[in-house]
Design a protein around this nucleic acid. Structure first.
Lengths: 208, 208
DNA sequence: GAGAAACATACAGACAGCATGCATCTCAGC
DNA sequence: GCTGAGATGCATGCTGTCTGTATGTTTCTC
């Protein structure tokens, strides 16, 4: 028996799963899902593969948990930006802007935009409810209900806008001048949104 | 010596590489890049792994060749749609529409949109010149030069529009009513393009 | 101290890539 | 036209690594 402090089972579990999750996140960002071995995760986390398989069913599951945490954090930020605006349509614009800016973080970009679509299949991603795309759609729905923009097929519009933002975030990773490109991207995004609104956005400050 | 027909080395090479490429394409579509083993490709192609490694340096390379062929075919279709219009801006609209419609093909979608970003890194994809994104940008450049739309930061705008189209193509794969959703997506895409044009698109039929 | 939970170790099957050897083709020189 | 040496196409076996499982050992809980 070493001098190791006695810990409750809960504490032990939390310590090892936290260590595994955070090192896994780091490695997934650095080397991608396929490029990261369980051995590497465990070694860096200071546990054995036996411990890993005690807490996670397989490699996909730990990625799913990392991804879910990432999504929830993102959604929280975007939702806050949306709610900070009085006009729902301004909220959509602010949310889109915030999503784009948040996606500049390399870790967010790599995990949520690049690796997730392959590591998880479409249904698994769909299952992680309340993703950013869903949030965007909710914003659009509220904007329509409030009469800010005419009724539209919102599912297709959501995909278009979400895709526009995500692809831009990926591209920004390789831009020579990130600040300037971000500024230009935001200006062009607003143009597209004006098109989506089908008006010059005079404002309509009723909240639902 | 069996009754096997004598073949030139060129013929032999072409036969095996063609077999490998086409079966690889099929398996990549069905099971993805990581989910496809070289053994499976070779078995289905009727050759051994030795033959594979004689013609390709590794698994990534055969994917790259499959992807390149896919891209070239897509670009050709999009370019044709663009050139069929007199007005460059109409060409951009037609090109976007064609790209979206082409991406409905499950094989195209899976290989170019889902697997490629992970199997190949960003630089490898960038290296395969004359991709669809580049084609879109060229169209926008011509439209600006022809005076159809005001000068704009085209790189960000290209990313936005390209991402919008690709994400929609992915989403269409899971739509309940694909035809109706495609119709709605195209109508919303045109709204965004009107926003990008910054005008009501009265037409400007000078070609460069 | 018995049972459960956390963790470690040993192992099996699959896979990518390499090395080496055999089969088939090509072509110069006769 | 024939031949043999070299080049090219292809097959087989091996190695290291990886995921996932089965089973053993330690640590905690009651």
């Amino acid at each position: 028996m070493t001098t190791r402090a006695r810990r409750s089972q809960q504490d032990r579990t939390k310590a090892t799963t936290d260590a595994l999750l955070s090192t896994a996140r780091g490695l997934f960002v650095e080397q991608g899902f396929a490029g990261t071995s369980l051995g590497a995760i465990c070694e860096r986390a200071g546990v054995t593969r036996g411990a890993f398989y005690h807490h996670f069913s397989n490699k996909e599951q730990i990625f799913r948990e990392v991804y879910t945490a990432e999504q929830q954090a993102l959604v929280a930020v975007v939702r806050r930006a949306f709610r900070a605006q009085d006009d729902p349509w301004d909220g959509v614009i602010a949310g889109g802007r915030t999503l784009l800016e948040s996606s500049l973080e390399p870790a967010v970009r790599k995990i949520t935009l690049v690796e997730a679509p392959v590591a998880l299949d479409w249904n698994a991603m769909r299952g992680i409810h309340a993703g950013c795309k869903e949030q965007l759609r909710t914003g659009l729905t509220i904007a329509v209900e409030a009469g800010c923009i005419p009724a539209r097929p919102l599912a297709p519009l959501t995909s278009l806008l979400y895709g526009a933002i995500c692809e831009s975030a990926l591209d920004l990773a390789h831009a020579a001048d990130e600040r300037a490109t971000l500024r230009d991207t935001l200006s062009q995004l607003e143009l597209l949104l004006i098109g989506a609104a089908g008006r010059q956005t005079p404002g309509c400050a009723h909240r639902s």
